[in-house]
Nucleic acid binder design. Structure first.
Lengths: 344, 344
DNA sequence: GTGAAAGCGCTAACAC
DNA sequence: GTGTTAGCGCTTTCAC
């Protein structure tokens, strides 16, 4: 066996010596680059195997790619992100890319810090779910790193790709379903943004769809939008206030499933029956909707498809595509007990 | 303003020129290293600010630290990891470290690949939750990167730290509580390991505690351990089989909360009342336990504390500590409706 | 207290 | 098809 370099680390130099070739040859094999004979490739591969060679990502990052992709999510609570990630993994399965996650806790400063961290680490590209930072900051970083955004509606800027479901359509489906089931006073429970950008976000799009559908159903006078922070405390407080108000809503449409679960909890706490006294609908159709104790009607936006497409677009963009692409999934309503037809 | 290097990137060289000092001086300021005058430090800091300098992580990784920590979790479904992460963030708040996550999907090959990826990227240290790989592989990687394990009981090997709750004690609390509430046939629903290492894992420890407590309560003849894969399908199938069996358990102790939620669902589907016909207890006391529709009794192991301690230990270890430390939290039972006293 | 210079492991342009 | 070599941005001796 060839001697390791003095540091003890197996580098491409060690491999080159062992295989009796140049470092350039090894580098080419490593990158599946053009211009190496099968014989040489074979010898190099064998040496790598034998020596247990592992490419040093930092060194690669100094000149070329790091084969690392960043995935930035708002939190670790929402199981919807697991669906998205499953889709991304499918797309990346047979590639060299590794996916590393950042969790921003829905805070703009953390979002910024993590994106900077990913850029500093020379990641090849990033996928960001529902960014909250202002558009000019998004423009700034997507000029510096290949970017795909999920859950962000903005086609004006052509330096990043987007992957979305049709959130307006999803909200419309919800309202139409509730109206058909006999509900009139439908309230939309959204997320309070706390000084962050609201435009382009899924919650805003859903609100647009909700308002339009209520209008179209002749229920404009019942339009009501309530916002709450994401913590259990805040959501429950908002729900409690709504459900104890004089003109209590007949149905609550929650911007995402786990908010709806909190509403179900408060309804039960107040002795309200669902859907007898109150219908509840969520969004994302996460696995919790199916549990009998929830039986939550929800909008399915195919998280796996979103993730798969996002990863595909990112790899394409890293590969050199510069024209922006915008992928849209058509949402689908999944009816469950929480919004069954209203008893007369 | 000093000219940027030809590439356009602001490097320590740019900063050095702007501040009229050497690159070595800048590097020292960057690392808060010993041997720089306040005046020089001030000038360098000002230039960094002015030029918007950001250290290039890959380049740092070639020689020194990357200021990146890895956090490996089994999945994105279990909200318990969010608690742990919150604790870690608290510990890392005022440091330069950035935390990046890997998700192994509970599969040993993914676990291996992600740990390798983290090592290749010269991360300064990693925290791994409930590793499933064989102990010799754990020993191998923890020799190459500072390591803290959460949810892994092994003190024999002294090259990594561990952070745990007392899982045997937690399981004992559950059994004692159920027995006191009038339940006798208590079944433990664990996780099937699919050829992976079971020893040292929390599920195994809880099983030990469960068996011992049942024995101590004189209920050895009712000891029953059932294992299921982590998918909703498999869990529900296992639960259905259990609850339809001739000698149906009076109580099911689930190794983690979200398994318990599935059991609650199946119980309801089969028309069993909880806790009338069946008591259910979980573990981790995640936020879902509190929802009225679940009202799930669970064991609280203070995820935030676990995360905080893990991060603290990791930073210490990176700082040079070599003696292993093992931190243990005492678990606490949180009683809710799912296990109230058994009706006579 | 400060700076010059030698690498760290790899990629890519270029020469052969 | 293969090898030589000049960096990439930073850290770290070692002079001064």
């Amino acid at each position: 066996m060839a001697p390791k370099s003095k540091s003890g680390r197996v580098t491409i130099k060690t491999v080159a010596e062992d295989a009796g070739v140049s470092v350039a040859a090894v580098s080419k094999v490593l990158r599946d680059a053009y211009g190496v004979s099968d014989a040489l490739r074979g010898r190099v591969r064998a040496s790598m195997q034998k020596l247990g060679y592992r490419p040093h990502a930092a060194a690669r990052g100094m000149r070329g790619q790091t084969y690392t992709l960043g995935f930035l999510i708002p939190d670790l609570h929402n199981p919807f992100f697991a669906d998205i990630m499953a889709g991304m993994n499918t797309a990346l399965e047979r590639t060299q890319y590794q996916m590393l996650l950042g969790v921003s806790d829905s805070a703009v400063p953390n979002e910024k810090a993590l994106i900077d961290a990913m850029i500093d680490r020379q990641m090849d590209g990033i996928i960001v779910i529902g960014p909250r930072m202002p558009i000019d900051q998004i423009r700034d970083f997507s000029g510096r790193i290949s970017t795909v955004l999920i859950g962000y509606h903005s086609k004006e800027i052509d330096i990043f790709d987007t992957v979305n479901n049709d959130d307006r359509r999803g909200a419309t489906l919800v309202v139409q379903h509730l109206v058909a089931a006999g509900y009139r006073r439908v309230t939309y429970l959204s997320q309070s943004m706390h000084g962050a950008m609201k435009e382009a976000m899924v919650t805003a799009e859903r609100e647009v769809g909700y308002r339009a559908a209520m209008q179209a159903a002749g229920l404009a006078r019942h339009i009501q939008v309530v916002e709450a922070l994401q913590t259990s405390r805040d959501i429950q407080a908002a729900a409690r206030q709504l459900l104890q108000s004089r003109n209590r809503p007949e149905a609550i449409f929650c911007w995402t499933d786990f908010i709806a679960l909190e509403v179900l909890s408060v309804a039960r706490e107040l002795g309200l029956s669902v859907p007898g006294d109150l219908a509840v609908v969520g969004y994302d159709n996460t696995s919790y909707c199916d549990l009998m104790q929830n039986s939550l009607t929800s909008v399915d936006q195919s998280g796996q498809v979103l993730g798969l497409q996002a990863a595909r677009l990112l790899v394409e963009r890293i590969g050199g595509r510069t024209a922006a692409e915008h992928f849209i999934v058509t949402p689908r309503l999944v009816e469950r007990a929480s919004s069954r037809h209203r008893p007369a």
